[in-house]
Write a protein that binds this DNA or RNA. Structure first.
Lengths: 251, 251
DNA sequence: CGAATTCTTTGCCCGCGCGCAAAGAATACA
DNA sequence: TGTATTCTTTGCGCGCGGGCAAAGAATTCG
């Protein structure tokens, strides 16, 4: 299975950094999954078609169920992408950091947002109206092609998570969730990998398909075993190998 | 939420029809999700870039884990798209009938097939090599755009199935599964909607995330209640309204 | 046509993990 | 600094549904 190679190479902007107008935005665009492979002139064209919007921590950037009118790419700050099920469960789909995007479907007519994006901290995002994005895709087929690639990867990940929910016990799923988070939002420290977003037991439960009580019991056990170090809304992975062992355990 | 409008309008070719070279193939291409919106000349171009392959019932058209080298579109016959999880569970992702396709990822370099496609009955499919499809997408951005749209819809459905697995009891999920199958593979008869593929209890279990024993108990109960009529590897939905009620029940 | 195979049915036991309760602890705010 | 709020922890009971067993029934094949 192939992963989105650009993720490993993207420049990581510290969450602690105060939120200011950042140069080079074109660099973020060039490194992003959707706009990679475009020439500098094409990137300039893309940049000029967007507006920059700012969001305060806690603000919704898009709302599930609303008509999907715009495509967003984070320039700084972080967001949490969530869905609410008909019976009121919240599912955490993923976190987003600079370079990550959502709302590709705005280029398709008549779609609603299938998830909500909530700014975790003060953030800025480039925003393209859907028709504008569609025109860019018509002009530069590479954007549509990259979009297809991104949605393919999203689908593959959703298939994997479905399979995990179907076949794996809770502990295994929580281990997998922490590994994904380490990979996507992790920052290496002397002690291990710090997951660099606020991550409550509730958040981790929503991400791995369980409840905060199960997550609490599991993290307590792993902390005692030295696998993780935790605090309030904070998880640091001390032994990624242990998590890999747990994640791969066969029943 | 928007559905793939072309599904409702696609011409349905009877499974019972013996498998012969069918005219009009261009019509199937024009109606398909991937190639809709192309001009007649463009469709001709697309048609000429493909080869026609024949598969006997039971034969694998693509295999999960193999490098994704080709894109397939069924011209006649039916296929079953499945995944096997690391611990040996089989998941039925969906059925495919003429006009349906799989393997878009072959246009993306370095991907493996995430599922296997097995011919249910003697079938024929148009096959495009990945590089050829990628070139077609570069030449006609509408194909890449349609591809992005198709993968978006796939992703949305996968998200919904994840949510269902997370929050709904087995009976509700089996009802939803039958509704989807009625919609995708159903044929109206006097008695109700016949799901027009062989559908064992095991198949329905793999499609709805449960076991054949649970499905058996549920179908037996629904048959007694007049909701369905069943036979061996055969389900006819007598009361779609009843299934809708069951599917929508809140805990 | 009979044997073999595969699918379906029904009973029943067990365990995972959800969910509720009841705290304690950490953080935010006035 | 103290109060209020929110998050975390731990105990425990219950139920959904998985899975095994043991058949019966339908279909396939020789």
């Amino acid at each position: 299975m192939v992963h989105d190679g650009s993720s490993a190479e993207e420049t990581i902007y510290r969450r602690a950094t105060s939120c200011v107008m950042i140069d080079p935005i074109l660099h973020i665009l060039a490194d992003s999954s959707v706009f990679q492979g475009l020439s500098e002139r094409e990137l300039q064209d893309v940049r000029e078609a967007a507006t920059m919007r700012r969001y305060v921590a806690g603000e919704l950037m898009v709302r599930q169920g609303d008509p999907a009118l715009a495509f967003h790419m984070l320039i700084c700050g972080h967001a949490k992408l969530v869905q609410v099920t008909p019976d009121g469960h919240q599912v955490l789909i993923r976190y987003a950091r600079p370079g990550h995007s959502f709302g590709l479907r705005s280029a398709l007519s008549g779609f609603e947002y299938s998830l909500s994006a909530e700014a975790i901290d003060d953030s800025r995002a480039l925003v393209w109206y859907g028709e504008v994005l569609a025109q860019l895709m018509e002009r530069y087929s590479r954007i549509a092609f990259n979009g297809m690639r991104m949605m393919t990867l999203r689908n593959v990940e959703m298939q994997l998570r479905y399979q995990e929910l179907l076949t794996e016990p809770v502990e295994q799923r929580v281990a997998q969730a922490l590994l994904r988070l380490s990979n996507d939002m992790g920052q290496k420290t002397k002690e291990g990998i710090l997951i660099d977003v606020p991550l409550s037991r509730e958040d981790l439960a929503e991400y791995s398909g369980t409840t905060l009580y199960s997550v609490s019991r599991i993290l307590r056990q792993w902390e005692n075993a030295g696998v993780v170090r935790t605090g309030r809304e904070r998880v640091l992975v001390r032994s990624q190998d242990s998590l890999l062992d747990i994640a791969a355990a066969t029943i």
